[in-house]
Structure formats: C-alpha cells, structure tokens
Design a protein around this nucleic acid. Structure first.
Length: 302
DNA sequence: TGCCAGGTATAGG
DNA sequence: CCTATACATGGC
C-alpha cells in the first residue's frame, strides 16, 4: 500500500468517461470515497482518494516500483493536461463548462489489443452491457486471481475480504476459444467479428506492434480492414489503445455536440488535441443526459 | 415490457 | 456519395 499526491487526477471522471470498461468501484472508504479496481495488462490495482488527505491524495495497492514502472504511464500522469485544456478558445463557454466538470480526466494508456476487442463489443451496447460482456470474456479462462485487501481494512472494514479478477485474454488465449465460448459472453452478432479479429492478429495479418509506429491515417486504415470495425471503433482503438490524442471518435454524442455547438465542424485549432477535448465533452454530455433521465423518471413517478 | 444502446455491413438509390 | 435496414443481447 502506497500513499501518493497526484495533481489533476479524478478517478470517477476517468472511470465514467467511457474509455475503459474494467475500472469499477468495489466499495467506498468512509462511505464516501470509491475504491476502484483497475485491471490492466495482467495486473490489478486498488486505488482510492485518501480519506485523511486532500483531493490530491490517493492510496494505491501496489509498490512504489510498480507505480513508477507501470501505473504512472498507464494513468497518463506524465503530461500536463492544462496544456491540452489551454486549447479551449476563450469564447467557447460550452467547452469550458465541460472542462470544469471533467477536470482530472486522463486518457489512459491502455492495451491496443484489449481496446480493439472491447470496442468491437461496444457497438450497439450500453456501457453496463459492454462491461458485462468484457468481464465474461475474461472469465472464460477460469484463471481467477485474488487480490489481498487486508491492509485496506484498517481504513474501512466495509471492503470485501478479497478482490477477485480475471485478466483480459491475450491473442493466443482468445484465438483458442470456440464460437460457442464467445457467444456465451453475450457478444451476439459481434461473435464473428471477435473471432476474425483474433485470427487476423494471431496470423500477423494485423500487426499491432508495428501499427504503434504508423501514422494516424495508416493506423485507421489498417484497423478498418477488420470486419466489424468501422470508423467509430477504429478511432476509439486508436485514441484509447494507441494514444492518438488528435483523433475524435464520432459517435452519436459527439455528432450531437458538434452540430449543436460547433455548427457541424470542429474548430481547426482544436484538432491537435481533439481526442482529449472530446473526452471532456463526452463525460459532460453523458452526465447531463443521465441527470435529465433522473428528472424525467421522478416526474413520471408523480 | 418494450425500448434502446459510444455502430457496422449491406443493399439500393 | 447518400439513406434505410438488420443485427443479438442485456439493462433499465
């Protein structure tokens, strides 16, 4: 267990901004601060605000070496995000509003393979449904791991004794699964897409390592060759799996925002970091949407 | 209980 | 180029 001070870092904003599907709250410290389980690249981390510190103070379950050697980069803590936020035009009150809600968002450095498969699954699914299918896909291995949480009980006894997790299947493991295995995760019509993507990466037809070096348009072009990967999934894979911060996934939410606030075109000056700015907007748009939904439900119940 | 979900492939204009 | 439609399932 390790205590850390981290600036410009908001766990909830990261977990709820639609970029990752395996960062979930497993409990709360002092009924207030969510403890997140983060599964990534064959590891699992517990992380929470430090109840005894300020909003910049955190507690993590890993060693200092593991934090510095992996998670610091995973959470993208090296860049100064103020630099990205400074792209917002002075008169762009909408974006400024998004930024004030989403300050502390980071674009995680996630595994390209996991992002590819996860975003293939994501099409026409709600975020909770995506999470369910991804978890089931991971559980197919039956290779369960256990994270000891004893140390955390000094902070709050309400946490579970142990936290269990499955790692995301590597290419070889996923390739060994049958259609029926994949289907059983609730992947539905995307089953064939997943199988085909796994085959492509397995055969070397798609070389994710090499693509890390490719230019943005080259990367997108290669991803788009995969059945079931359209422009949205390709862009999400590029942004979240390859950290291409200029790329902006064009989903229903961003299309709505673009039409409503930017008369159909993103400002040219935003383009170098549009992927980052988009993340603030997406988080805000979803937040507002959920708020409206709650209001509506209350009205209907009257 | 239906409706809808961070879309894509395909067919037809 | 554009628009219309089917698609498997889970969550709410």
């Amino acid at each position: 267990m390790l205590r850390l001070t981290i600036d410009d870092f908001d766990l909830t904003a990261i977990a709820e901004s639609g970029q990752c599907f395996r960062m979930t709250a497993v409990g709360k410290l002092q009924d207030k601060f969510p403890v997140y389980k983060v599964i990534a690249s064959g590891r699992c981390l517990l992380i929470s605000r430090d109840p005894e510190g300020s909003e910049h103070d955190f507690i993590v379950s890993c060693s200092e070496d593991e934090w510095n050697g992996f998670y610091k980069n995973y959470f993208d803590l090296l860049p100064d995000y103020q630099t990205y936020r400074d792209y917002a035009a002075d008169d762009d009150s909408f974006l400024k509003e998004c930024i004030s809600y989403g300050k502390g968002i980071r674009i995680l450095n996630q595994d390209p393979w996991e992002m590819l498969i996860s975003f293939i699954i994501s099409q026409r699914k709600s975020v909770p449904a995506i999470r369910t299918t991804v978890e089931r896909l991971c559980a197919l291995s039956r290779d369960i791991h256990t994270l000891d949480t004893k140390e955390w009980h000094a902070l709050d006894a309400g946490l579970p004794e142990a936290v269990e997790y499955y790692c995301f299947p590597d290419v070889q493991t996923l390739s060994s699964y049958s259609m029926e295995d994949i289907q059983s995760t609730g992947a539905g019509y995307r089953t064939g897409y997943i199988m085909e993507a796994a085959r492509g990466v397995m055969s070397g037809e798609i070389d994710l390592k090499a693509l890390a070096e490719a230019a943005d348009d080259q990367l997108l072009e290669s991803l788009l060759k995969i059945q079931g990967v359209g422009i949205k999934v390709a862009t999400c894979t590029a942004l979240f799996g390859f950290h291409r911060l200029s790329l902006c996934p064009e989903d229903v939410w961003m299309k709505r925002v673009k039409e409503q606030f930017y008369s159909g075109n993103w400002p040219e000056s935003y383009k170098p970091v549009l992927g980052v700015l988009q993340q603030y907007m997406f988080y805000y748009a979803r937040l507002e949407h959920d708020r409206d939904k709650i209001k509506r439900t209350k009205r209907e119940n009257r």
